[in-house]
Design a protein around this nucleic acid. Structure first.
Length: 283
DNA sequence: GTGTTTGTTATCAA
DNA sequence: CTTGATAACAAACA
C-alpha cells in the first residue's frame, strides 16, 4: 500500500537512475492501465526524454521534454515501478521470479535497453498522459496541501477539522485535506497524537489538532528515512522492501501489547478500513 | 464459499 | 450547492 513515504522513496530511486533517458519503445500489456488506445499512449511517449520526476501526494509526475507532456502514474494499492538495466533480471514483484512477471502492465524501454516495469497485481493503478492545463486542473480538483511543504499550515488545519462532522480517521484519509496519508500512516499519526480514530473531527481540541499536525510530517519524514513500509506488495524502484514496517506502533499489531502502556492494541473498522489504536494511550 | 486487504471514485442521500 | 456514507473496482489469500 504505497502512501507518501513509499511513493517518495520510489521517486528518489527513479530520479537517480532514469533522468534524461530517452524512451525507445512502450509496451502496454494491460490496456485499461493507460486508458484510451494503447498505441496512442505508446506513440506519444516514443522518442521523449525524461526531464524530471515530481510527486504530489501519492501521485508521481514524470515530466517529459516534449512540450506540455506529463506522464502521471498512480500505484494505488499494489502498483510497483521497477527499474532494471539491460538484461537485468529481477527476482520478486508479487512473488514472480520472471523478469517481467505475470503482473507487468506497462513496460517502458529506454534507448540504452534499460527498462521500467509498471507491475500491478490488482490493476487499480494507472498511467495517464496529460498536458500542463490538465495537470493543473487535476491537482487543483483532487489535492490539498502537501504535509512536507510550507503550504501545510496549522491554523488552516485546525479550522478545517472544526468544520468536519466525520470521524478524524476519514478526514485524515481525505486527500483534499492533507495529501499523502493512507490507512497505515493515519493509524500511526493518531497513535502519536493520542487521539482515537473514531473521534468526531469537529470536536478535536486545539491541542490535539496541533499534536496531529505535528505528528504528520514527523512520521512521514521518519518513514521516508527508512525507505517506507512494506506490508504486502510495496517495493522501491529497485524491488527492495521498506524498513519502516518494523517501526509501526499500532498498524498490524492487533492484540499485541502497546509499546507505551502494554495494553492490548484494538483492531476495529472505521471508514471501511482496518483501524488500530491503543485504548489507553488514545483518548 | 466467506471475509479481508485498501486508494480512489461513483453513486446516492440528506 | 455541499457533505457524508457506502459500494464498487480487482485479485489473492487465509
Amino acid at each position: 500500500m504505497p502512501e507518501l513515504p513509499e511513493v517518495e522513496t520510489v521517486r528518489r530511486d527513479l530520479q537517480k537512475h532514469l533522468l534524461n533517458k530517452k524512451i525507445k519503445s512502450v509496451t502496454v500489456l494491460n490496456p485499461k492501465t493507460v486508458g484510451g488506445k494503447p498505441e496512442d499512449f505508446a506513440t506519444s511517449l516514443q522518442g521523449a526524454f525524461l526531464k524530471d520526476i515530481l510527486r504530489r501526494g501519492k501521485l508521481l509526475i514524470f515530466k517529459l521534454n516534449k512540450p506540455n507532456l506529463f506522464l502521471l502514474t498512480h500505484l494505488k494499492m499494489t502498483g510497483q515501478l521497477i527499474y532494471l538495466i539491460k538484461n537485468e533480471v529481477y527476482a520478486g514483484g508479487h512473488g514472480e521470479s520472471d523478469t517481467a512477471g505475470k503482473y507487468a502492465r506497462v513496460i517502458i524501454t529506454f534507448a540504452d535497453q534499460s527498462r521500467l516495469f509498471f507491475n500491478d497485481l490488482r490493476k487499480f493503478g494507472y498511467m495517464k498522459l496529460v498536458d500542463q492545463e490538465e495537470l493543473d486542473k487535476f491537482i487543483l480538483k483532487n489535492y490539498g496541501p502537501e504535509p512536507l511543504d510550507k503550504d501545510f499550515i496549522l491554523s488552516d488545519f485546525i479550522a478545517t477539522l472544526k468544520k468536519r462532522r466525520r470521524n478524524i480517521k476519514s478526514v485524515l484519509l481525505d486527500q483534499k485535506i492533507v495529501t499523502g496519508l493512507g490507512n497505515i500512516y493515519v493509524d500511526e499519526v493518531l497513535f502519536a497524537a493520542g487521539v482515537r480514530p473514531m473521534r468526531l473531527a469537529s470536536e478535536i481540541t486545539k491541542l490535539e489538532a496541533t499534536k496531529i499536525f505535528t505528528a504528520i510530517p514527523k512520521i512521514l519524514n521518519l518513514a521516508i528515512k527508512h525507505r517506507g513500509t512494506t506490508f504486502n506488495n510495496y517495493v522501491d524502484g529497485k524491488g527492495r522492501k521498506g524498513n519502516f514496517s518494523k517501526m509501526l506502533k499500532v498498524y498490524g499489531r492487533a492484540k499485541e501489547s502497546c509499546l507505551i502502556c502494554s495494553n492490548a492494541i484494538i483492531k476495529t473498522k472505521i471508514a471501511g478500513r482496518g483501524t488500530h489504536y491503543c485504548p489507553h494511550c488514545q483518548k
